[in-house]
């Protein structure tokens, strides 16, 4: 009775997915950076004669109602989406790690106060925060990042807190305490590196979350407004002309979806590996 060799085939396929996703992401970032900088067209230059052209070799994605090249516009917007997504995720990540680490390590009352405060903040949907901030600070990239960061760190804080609670009961944490190493050093040098796996996975999920929030809000008209156009704004503009000139909608839409899918694949692959990087 022979049992089958059931190993590598699954693994090999998995690696293929990851590598493909990583390559696509790198290409995406390359385009988002280079096209606005080095491309022949400017995202804002208007040319009434070539309005609403379909996809062609000169204009890869066609032109919009003002004659602006869509390809350049899409990648310019992609760059903005990426900046907002990664920027706010970094801020969220840092705040979340600090907050969660302190709450988890100190425990008892401090933990309770910090986490209940976080619960209250999390109870209000982020749309409201962004709207409020936009009203106060005016529309733009800064207010968008700020709005997302008000409540975006809470997930990370909860994850890190859970890890700290688990790690502070371990023997090596007790040994470090017996050594007389200060609490702060134990927290950041001894315990946090062990939580790195979970932190990275969570961070990789934060990015598409932030990008989507921004796109969604811009689509609703709450976020960025002309002339700064993120992918969400472009999608909204394309929506009106969806039937006549579909590529004006599809181009930014597919670009956005590709980005989100790629990040998700990478995040899930990281999770599957248990956060170990090779």
């Amino acid at each position: 009775m022979r049992k089958e060799n059931r190993i590598s085939s699954k693994k090999r396929k998995g690696y293929r997915d990851e590598k493909a996703a990583l390559i696509i992401l790198l290409i995406w970032i390359f385009l988002a950076v280079c096209v606005p900088l080095f491309g022949p067209y400017s995202p804002t230059e208007q040319n009434a004669e070539i309005r609403n052209q379909p996809m062609s070799l000169i204009h890869f994605f066609g032109t919009d109602e003002f004659g602006r090249d869509n390809f350049t516009r899409v990648w310019y917007g992609a760059g903005i989406s990426l900046v907002i997504g990664v920027g706010s995720s970094l801020i969220n990540g840092m705040i979340g790690i600090l907050y969660g680490a302190v709450a988890g390590y100190r425990g008892k009352r401090i933990d309770m106060i910090l986490m209940r405060a976080a619960d209250v903040i999390a109870a209000i949907p982020s749309i409201l925060y962004v709207i409020l901030i936009t009203l106060v600070m005016g529309p733009g990239i800064k207010s968008m990042i700020f709005g997302i960061c008000i409540a975006g760190w809470i997930d990370m804080a909860r994850v890190v807190r859970g890890e700290m609670i688990r790690l502070k009961e371990t023997d090596f944490a007790a040994a470090a305490k017996i050594d007389g190493i200060s609490g702060i050093r134990i927290l950041f040098r001894h315990l946090l590196p062990n939580a790195l796996g979970m932190i990275v996975v969570n961070f990789l999920f934060l990015i598409p979350q932030a990008i989507f929030t921004e796109a969604f809000l811009s689509f609703l008209g709450v976020g960025l407004s002309a002339p700064t156009a993120s992918l969400g704004t472009l999608i909204q503009e394309g929506r009106d002309r969806m039937i006549l000139y579909p590529c004006e909608l599809l181009a930014p839409l597919i670009t956005l979806c590709v980005l989100l899918v790629v990040f998700h694949i990478l995040a899930m692959a990281m999770e599957r590996r248990g956060g170990q990087t090779d």
């Binding site: 371990t170 023997d171 090596f172 007790a174 040994a175 017996i178 001894h190 590196p193 062990n194």
Partner: peptide
């Protein structure tokens, strides 16, 4: 006063 723990797998920090 120093201590040696029971479980050699959890008494050493896996990240160091």
């Amino acid at each position: 006063v120093r201590m040696i723990f029971q479980d050699p797998y959890s008494s050493l920090n896996p990240c160091m």
